[in-house]
């Protein structure tokens, strides 16, 4: 499944620069708001679902070469977070849904590798 399909199916808002998301194939996913747990557990090239929206999510995502960060419950990162993400080539996506729902949908779509 491509990131483009995930974006379309979950109706995610793309906060960062548009890329060819149909070429990006996430390997799995991880959900947590604790950064050190994400570092320990997120699969490389995976998607990370969180309601954190501050600057450090970019650092963590870049460190782990994540495919995308899905920010849940309508939380919106500040503009400088978005520009930092663009600098680092990190894709930030936003959903109005809570984490539980987002993860459920990803699971339904077949993204079941938890790392």
């Amino acid at each position: 499944m491509t990131l483009q399909e995930i974006i379309d199916q979950l109706g995610l808002k793309v906060l960062t620069d548009v890329k060819d998301f149909s070429q990006i194939i996430p390997t799995g996913g991880y959900a947590s708001d604790l950064l050190s747990c994400v570092i320990a557990g997120a699969p490389r090239q995976g998607v990370w679902v969180t309601l954190q929206a501050h600057m450090n999510i970019v650092a963590v995502a870049a460190l782990l070469d994540l495919s995308a960060v899905i920010i849940t419950e309508g939380a919106r990162p500040e503009p400088r977070v978005i520009s930092k993400a663009n600098e680092e080539g990190i894709t930030l996506l936003a959903s109005e849904q809570p984490t539980f729902q987002v993860v459920g949908r990803l699971w339904e779509l077949g993204l079941k590798n938890g790392g």
């Binding site: 499944m1 379309d8 890329k19 149909s22």
Partner: peptide
């Protein structure tokens, strides 16, 4: 899943943008 495909042509990849 089909919905993603129509957008494909218009997307400028990072590489191209670079």
């Amino acid at each position: 899943m089909k919905s993603g495909k129509t957008r494909r042509e218009r997307v400028i990849t990072d590489e191209v943008a670079g």
